[in-house]
Amino acid sequence: MPSNRKTLIILSAVGVAMLGVGFASDPLYDTFCKVTGYGGTPKIADDNLSEVLDRTVTVEFDSNVAQDLPWKFKADQRRMDVQLGQSGLAYYTVKNTSDEALTGVANFNVMPIKAAPFFVKTDCFCFEEQTIQPGAEMSLPVIFFVDPQLDEDKRLDDVKTITLSYTFFPAEKGTLSAPEPAAQTVPATN
């Protein structure tokens, strides 16, 4: 009987450990991708303190919306030439075509993947959820630069064009409505 108890304790500990790893894997993977640029995830920076080089790359802008989010979303410019280290400012426009307020979140990707660690966003609408009222349209900015260290890696000499792609998804499963205004209480008069 003691051997069965020992086996049960070991299996329970393994199960709890696997459950913990399962919950921790998504945030750990996201952090890994942001730090390394793995999987086309660009770096995020606070300030652009880099030097500007003569080398120029073309940044193309792509926009998509998930099927279950009734929004129109487009880049205001199709492409932009920037020097390595130079800040770029691009705008996207999003419109809620439904008859209710909806909240969405934009996921992003950079192609080619090998250039992703060098694409740095200093400010972006994708850093937080966007709530848009019915029929409303918003202009959404993104400020970025391409790290001059891209020029130091000879494997990246062929990178002439970088595509920044966004896809908007509903912030939660289904649609979200704007919160109802709180009821106001009026104090009774004597």
Rank of each mutant, 00 (worst) to 15 (best):
S139V: 15
E129S: 15
E100D: 03
L102N: 06
Q133N: 14
F127C: 13
E129P: 07
A116C: 03
C126D: 14
K114E: 13
M138K: 12
M138R: 12
D123E: 13
S98P: 01
N109Q: 11
S98E: 01
A115L: 09
E100S: 10
T131N: 12
V94K: 03
N96H: 06
S139L: 15
Y92M: 04
V105C: 02
P141E: 05
T131V: 04
K121C: 09
E129W: 00
I132G: 00
F127I: 07
N107D: 08
N109D: 13
C124D: 15
F125V: 03
Q133R: 14
A106L: 10
F108Q: 03
M111P: 00
T97H: 02
M138H: 04
Q130R: 12
N96A: 06
L140C: 13
V110I: 15
I113V: 14
F119R: 05
A136H: 13
C126N: 10
A116M: 02
E100R: 10
N109S: 14
N96T: 07
I132S: 02
T103Y: 08
K114F: 00
T131F: 05
T122Q: 06
E100G: 06
G135E: 06
L140Y: 13
A136D: 15
V94L: 12
N107F: 13
I132R: 00
I113R: 12
T103L: 05
N107T: 05
Y92R: 00
Q130F: 05
S139P: 02
